[in-house]
Amino acid sequence: MEKILSVENLKVIFNTYAGTVQAVSDVSFTLDKGEIIGIVGESGCGKSVTSSAIMRLIPSPPGQISGGRIIFDGKDLVSLDEKALQSIRGNQISMIFQDPIVSLNPVLTVGLQLAESFMLHQKLPKKLALEKAVELLKLVGIPAPEERIHQYPHQMSGGMRQRVMIAMALALRPRILIADEPTTALDVTVQAQIMELIKKLNTELSTAVILITHDLGVVAGMCSRVLVMYAGKIVESAPARELYNSPQHPYTWGLLKSVPRPDKQKAALSSIPGQPPDLLAPPSGCAFMPRCQFAMEICKQPPKETVGSENHSCRCWLVDPASPYSPGTLFKEGEA
């Protein structure tokens, strides 16, 4: 497949009064045309920062991309100037944000907010742009779009606002769509509809999607590949099926076990004990070690990335060739 985005050794830091926070360190991945990949991890693991970095929307100061490259269309987004970035944002790469309630401008009509993309990037006059906005709302399944475009966000429900956000992001048929927890603020039935919609638009418009979520369950049905992030690093990445069949990193095990399974009777949902590390002073060894039930002496040193079959990579000493364990059996044992 044709590669359209490649992130190489991305590093993002935030300069705070308390010191430098290493929000994202050494993240690399690629995205193919029309592909959907998932980035999963707990709050604060760096997944949203990674996506903001691709859009170059890290608030600066205090944030700063301190290293690495983001190659899109043969250009390094990290070194582009604001003018060039503006022509890419919303046009070639666009983004859906977590909370549709606060992500739409309350004082502008939905129609104008949708039409704006056409006015900016295609220099359409307002009237034509508004007609396009109506088409967009139809595309995302909003009834009576001709009336809706004259409404303000507060006159719509949460699910409808998220549809508007999606319509806005897809306005110019971008080549990449970044969806940052697009369903977190919505109730379950609406969640499913929104996911369905993103999937449908991905097939119809062949837009590549980076889906960011903390829910491995959501990712399962959608993504061809999954990246698991922890403490600003990718700890495991594999094709979705491979990841679910043979997860290798203990953190991924924890995430998988915490997915609610209605088909299995369990007294309580399982969770990963402890807290993610303080990124002001990241541990020198494996960041997951303090919470890992399989921690060994060697885990005090940073684990290397091991790439196995099917492009399955993992940063864990358990999968090191010298490891006495076989990660697959450990996971199964934990399950029992």
């Binding site: 859009m55 929307l57 604001e82 503006q86 944002r89 666009s94 944000f97 704006e116 900016l120």
Partner: peptide, 20 residues
């Protein structure tokens, strides 16, 4: 957040202040 949304759409500084 809606300012970030506008910036993600490619809205430039001037229009960002004036319209958003």
């Amino acid at each position: 957040d809606f300012i970030r949304t506008a910036r993600a759409k490619g809205v430039g500084q001037g229009l960002l202040i004036y319209r958003h």
